[in-house]
Structures are given as C-alpha cells and as structure tokens.
Design a protein around this nucleic acid. Structure first.
Length: 536
RNA sequence: GAGGCUGUAGCUCAGUCGGCAGAGCAACGGACUUUUAAUCCGUAGGUCCUGGGUUCGAGUCCCAGCAGCCUCACCA
C-alpha cells in the first residue's frame, strides 16, 4: 500500500486522508480492521431501553423524565410526547441533578459527525436503527479522544457507554470507551441525499443499502415476506423441496431459456424456466403437499417488471383443486402483509391504495372479456374482427390464442385488483385439467393486481394420455418456444404411474414484494439485478 | 430491437447565446463541551461518459459509440 501512495493523483486525496487516519489508528494501538466484539446490543433494543433513564437530583430524588416525541423545535429541542412544551423547558424546571441510564454497548456505521471543539456528536447506524453518540474529551479520556480524531463518515465503530438524554431530550449514548471496527477507505455518498443515481444504486448495492433511505428496510421486508410464506405453508402441512435448476427440457412455462452445456456428459442443458414439472413428479411419488421457492431464469427482455432471473413459488396440494389454491393464495398474501408489520391491509401503491382485504374479487375470464371489449368471447369471428381492429396479427392463429391476445391487450392492464380471473380457455392451458361440465374451459385462475399478474394456478392435469396429446398438438400460430406445451416424455411417463388430482399455484415473489413494499420497479426488490458489464 | 431522456469534483446537482469549470455536502487547516444535514473563517479538489467533426474558440452544436432510466416491442 505504500507504493500506491506515490502515484496518488489529486483526485485520490480523499483516500489519502483516510489512509493517513488508518495509519494513526494502528499507531494508537488499535487494529484498524477490528476484532470480535461480543455482547453488543442492537440499536433498536438500546432505544427500547429509554424508559430506564432517570433524572437524579442532588438530594437523591429520582424523577422519571417525560415521554419525548419525534419532532424538534427550531432550537433542536425535542417536543414532549404530550405536546406540553419541549424537553429543554421541562429540564429547566427541575432541581439540579443529572441523568442516569443503563450501560450499553453498540456497534455501527458513522452516518453523521458533528464535532464542536472538545466534543463530538456522532450518529451511528446498524441494521436495526440509528442512535446518537456523545463523545466528550474530558469524559472519554485522552486515548479514546485520540481515536475519535481518526473517525471518518462511513467508518464502523463500537462504543461502550451510558444511555441518557441530552438536554434537548435526544436519546444518546454517552461514550466511555470507543472501539474501531473497519475503515471506509472510499468516502461515502452525500450525507443528506444518499445515492440517487439508479445505475450506481444497482452496481454498488452495498452503498445503496448503507446510505439510501429505506433500502435496507425494503430488503429486510422482502426477507420477512419470504419467511412468512414458508411459515404459512409449513403450518398448512407443506414440505419444501429443492428441484434441479439444470433441465434437459425447459418446460412448465412459455419462455426462452438460457442454454448451457455439461462438459462431462456432453449435453445441452437449460436453466429452468419454471418449477412445475418436477414438483408434479413428486406428487406422483407421494409428497402430497409440496412446494419450492426458488430462482427461475428466462432469457427475455428486461423491464421494470421483468428481470432475467427471478424468484418463483410453486405449491402443489394433492386432492385439492384451483379453488383450494385461491384460498391458499389469499392466506399467503394476507400473512405476508402482516409479516411486513403493516397494521392495515390497505397498502399504498404510488398515489393509489390497494385493498388486500380478503376475499379478493372473483371474475371469470369470459365475463371480463365481454365487459372490457363489448365483444361476445364465444363468437370467434367477432373476436377475430375485433383483434384485427386492434392491429393484432390473426392469420393462422387458433381462436383461443387470438382471444387471449385481445384479453392481454384490452383487459389485463385494466385489472386493478386484487382480482382472481378464472376459467381460462382450455386451448391456452396445456397443463390444466378441463372443467367436467365444459371441456373447452380450463380450471385455472390468475391473480391480477394493478395490471400485474401476481399468481397463476390450476387444477392440475393428471391424465397422461391427454397430457401427451396436448404436448403433441402444438397450437396453431404458436412457435414451440412460445408455448408451454413442450413435449416432456419423462414427465408423461411419471403421470402414467398415477398423479393424484391436485391444485397447483405459482406466485411471482418479486412482484409480490413490489406490491407489498410500494416499489414500482422489480429492480428495487432484487438485490443485484442484471446489468450490462461496465468497462473500466 | 425502436424511440425519448440522462451522463459535469468522491456524492447531490447548476452551467444562460459557443467565450477562463461552478455550488452544497464530503476532504484539509483554524475556532467552538449539549450538537441536530451543527455553525463560522480559510484551503485544496475536474478524462465535463468515450471517440470523431464543425468553429478563432465546444461542457454547450453535429455524428458515432458506451452506460443508465422511461415508453414501446418481446415476455402470461
């Protein structure tokens, strides 16, 4: 690192200053890259101990200070929670004394520093919250004070101290001993705005998490949502499995796969585009309630709602059907909302509000079609004429395909939801059981929210002969790569051993997290979305 | 894949009609023992995304490219 210094350009003077402090920290006898730090408390837990703080007067009287609110006056003094003046005013009315509070130990990143002579206020943040430190030269002694002179924004530090309030009422750790955990050699983003450049936010997600308001909380919310889903399913008796991600046939959905190659077997393989067909094999094997929550890969365009790799949940329940899955979907969504800590099921979405209070609306595909187009969906000629009026290509296409293209064009965007769209035309559902009363209708629903497809569920087709036939009869107008009817003999062979009638459900987890965290772009809920390689 | 917008100091952003490259934060030096994006005084910091072109002169105009965002296409 010393050789590095000589060609230090003016632009790296910020780094040079930080490296100089790094050197001084070592000189003071501290490991600038830190050591194990046992028994520190989460900042949120420390904040929760505010009630233990007392005001001790000189004559030995202990007074419990009043509850402090969140807002401050122009002088920086906190307003009391009851609205009766400021903390500073309350303090002025008390007899002489001082605060006493619990001893605490915290660790975190330096977010703000306010040095005022022989006194420094520092705000540190950990993954639970933020708190102010008070470091007084006389209070901490020469050694700690010298160490504090080496602190930069972004450094990771530790502190032992007493939790008290300043005279403005701010909850503060009054430092007694300081520790150094790691130096930020590169300077952090602007302290007030954080990172705003969307490219930097994604390429340097670690900075985004550390410095952009709400980002860490959003990703932790994602984790809680996923945990909630696993718990809901476990409580309902489902077991989680891990299927293969390398497939010999990219089945179960209609999407272009990523292609890869296994050298030893000299075999072309595909990254999975869906979880469906292996989970159904497990139904045959007797795992009656089974799910997988994992990554799938689709070699398609990137948009605010699409990332090439995304997370899918697929659930299968033997002896259920698509209506069983509707109930389960509501349960999963509602529990996930509760898991985010939201007190309500009315969630904000941009300037709108989404009402996730169950039961969600249930509408049939055909009635929604007629409602939004004014065309009788059973009248193939009328639908075709309408499609052509919309400028859709109809030549050589199956009527079900044409009708569905119109549905996607005119209906889906209009579905604010949450709404279950049910009973799809059988022709576009090659993996779905047909209605007993009407074989042209498939027992399928999709859940739409704000024009986004959030979930997709079937009563699963378990007739091996019909399944083989549907794989074989490619729908007119669909290229094989655009169809989910991709022949999989091994899967048909599994069905021939008898798969129980079952309900199956797929939920796009990223989209669920988007909706539940008011995030308009899928990139806001994927830690490391795919970006082009950046040269230099 | 097509169109639009954006790219200037470590970060957040100005930059007029083409005429010496600007601010805030961060950094460095100084003052300050209850601050709140601390304040005050001073200093330093630039591949104006890249490459061409027009021009006496380009951050600014033109062309090409790169990257990001948005819309569309694609993708249930």
């Amino acid at each position: 690192m010393s050789e590095k210094q000589e060609n230090a350009t003016p632009g790296s003077s910020l780094e040079a200053a930080r490296r100089e402090k790094l050197r001084r920290i070592a000189e003071l006898g501290h490991d600038p890259w830190g050591q194990r730090f046992d028994h520190h408390q989460a900042i949120a837990d420390i904040i929760a101990r505010a009630g233990e703080i007392v005001y001790r007067t000189e004559d030995g009287q202990e007074i419990t200070p009043p509850a402090v609110g969140d807002s401050r006056d122009e002088q920086g003094a906190y307003l009391l929670a009851d609205g009766q003046g400021t903390f500073r005013e309350w303090l002025a009315k008390q007899p002489k004394g001082e605060f006493a509070g619990p001893k605490v130990r915290a660790a975190g990143r330096i977010m703000l520093q306010r040095p005022t002579g022989k006194l420094i206020f520092i705000n540190i943040r950990d993954w639970t919250g933020q708190i102010q430190l008070f470091i007084g030269k006389n209070q901490v002694g020469e050694d700690n004070w010298a160490l504090a002179q080496c602190f930069d924004l972004g450094d990771l530090i530790g502190v032992d101290g007493e939790l008290r309030r300043t005279k403005t009422g701010e909850l503060t750790i009054f430092a007694e001993k300081l520790y150094f955990h790691a130096k930020a050699i590169d300077p952090p983003p602007e302290k007030h705005h954080g990172l705003t450049d969307p490219e930097l936010r994604q390429r340097m997600r670690y900075l985004d998490l550390a410095y952009t308001e709400g980002v860490l909380e959003r990703f932790l919310a994602r984790t809680r949502i996923v945990q909630s889903i696993r718990k809901t399913l476990a409580d309902a008796g489902f077991v989680e499995i891990e299927g293969p991600t390398l497939h010999t046939i990219a089945g179960g959905a209609a999407a272009r796969p990523f292609i890869t190659h296994h050298n030893a077997l000299d075999m072309q393989l595909y990254l999975r585009i869906a979880l469906e067909l292996h989970l159904k094999r497990l139904l045959v094997g007797g795992i009656e309630r089974v799910y997988e929550l994992g990554r799938v890969y689709r070699n398609e365009g990137i948009s605010p709602r699409h990332n090439p790799e995304f997370t899918m949940l697929e659930v299968y329940q033997a002896y259920g059907d698509y209506r069983t899955m509707m109930d389960l979907t509501e349960q999963l969504v509602v529990n996930a909302i509760d898991a985010t800590g939201s007190p309500t099921r009315m969630l904000p979405w941009g300037d709108k509000t989404i009402d996730f209070t169950p039961p969600f609306a249930r509408r049939t595909y055909y009635e929604l079609f007629e409602e939004h187009t004014g065309v009788d969906p059973h009248d193939a000629d009328a639908v075709k004429a309408y499609a052509e009026k919309l400028g859709l290509e109809t030549a050589g296409k199956h009527p079900d395909v044409i009708r569905n293209e119109v549905f996607e064009e005119k209906v889906e965007d209009q579905l604010e939801g949450p709404v279950f769209v049910l009973d799809y035309p059988a022709g576009i559902c090659p993996l779905t059981k047909r209605k007993q009363s009407d074989p042209t209708i498939a027992e399928r629903f999709e859940l739409f929210v704000q024009g986004m497809e959030l979930a997709n569920a079937y009563t699963e087709l378990n007739d091996p002969d019909l399944q083989e036939e549907l794989f074989r009869t490619q729908l007119a107008g669909l290229k094989e790569e655009d169809s989910m009817a991709r022949m999989d003999h091994d899967f048909v062979k599994a069905l021939r051993q008898g798969m129980p009638p079952a309900g199956g459900l797929g939920i796009g987890i990223d989209r669920l997290v988007m909706l539940l965290t008011n995030s308009p772009s899928i990139r806001e809920v994927i830690l490391f979305p795919l970006l082009r390689e950046k040269s230099s």
